[in-house]
């Protein structure tokens, strides 16, 4: 079973990202769970959403405490230390950050597999949301597919088309662009 935690801010489509990811994996024949952090959400405040993927039916019905990987929609959560994003992240886990910086800039997070993609720029180029508040949740899933290989890009595209009613083509194109643009760090040396 793969467990993923998605960090973002209220209004960025964090919960929708978890749903699209689950829908995409489901289309590849996986059993899935996707859920928000169980609380009330406010626009701009840090939020999290969770995804489980498995080839077997998923029996565990609890929150996720030790994810295999993280998707961070807003790098300010890390840079301003608003959230301890790596809390509980499994050893050797992966982190994908929406950032214009190279992934090596996040090496301070620990010995994890790192990748970045400028999903904000890609989303803005595809006119998703506004330039100041781009909607990055679909773009970053393209990068997720290319980085982790856990879910194919075609399934992500189908899930976006099925889930996102507005500008669904632009959202799919943004995911495809992000899949190409994602930048993956060289593996960190052991014990770092």
């Amino acid at each position: 079973m793969i467990e993923i935690r998605i960090h973002g801010r209220g209004g960025q489509g964090t919960v929708i990202a978890s749903q699209i990811l689950a829908e995409a994996a489901f289309r590849e024949g996986k059993h899935v769970q996707a859920f928000p952090s169980f609380g009330s959400e406010r626009r701009g405040a840090p939020v999290a959403a969770f995804v489980r993927l498995d080839t077997e039916p998923i029996l565990v019905r609890t929150e996720i405490y030790e994810p295999d990987g993280l998707i961070v929609l807003d790098q300010s959560l890390i840079l301003q230390k608003l959230v301890d994003v790596t809390q509980g992240l499994k050893e050797g886990g992966w982190i994908l950050v929406n950032s214009s910086h190279p992934p090596e800039d996040f090496a301070h997070l620990g010995p994890y597999r790192l990748a970045t993609v400028d999903a904000s720029r890609i989303a803005a180029e595809h006119r998703l949301g506004s330039i100041t508040a781009p909607i990055v949740n679909t773009a970053i899933l393209g990068a997720f597919s290319a980085f982790t290989g856990l879910v194919g890009l075609e399934a992500i595209a189908e899930a976006i088309s099925a889930t996102v009613p507005v500008k669904s083509e632009a959202n799919v194109e943004a995911a495809r662009a992000a899949a190409v643009a994602v930048s993956v760090a060289e593996p960190a040396p052991a014990g770092r």
Partner: peptide, 12 residues
Amino acid sequence: LDAFFLSHTYED
């Protein structure tokens, strides 16, 4: 059904 653990959890 349980709040959130079922009500707000998407699954197949």
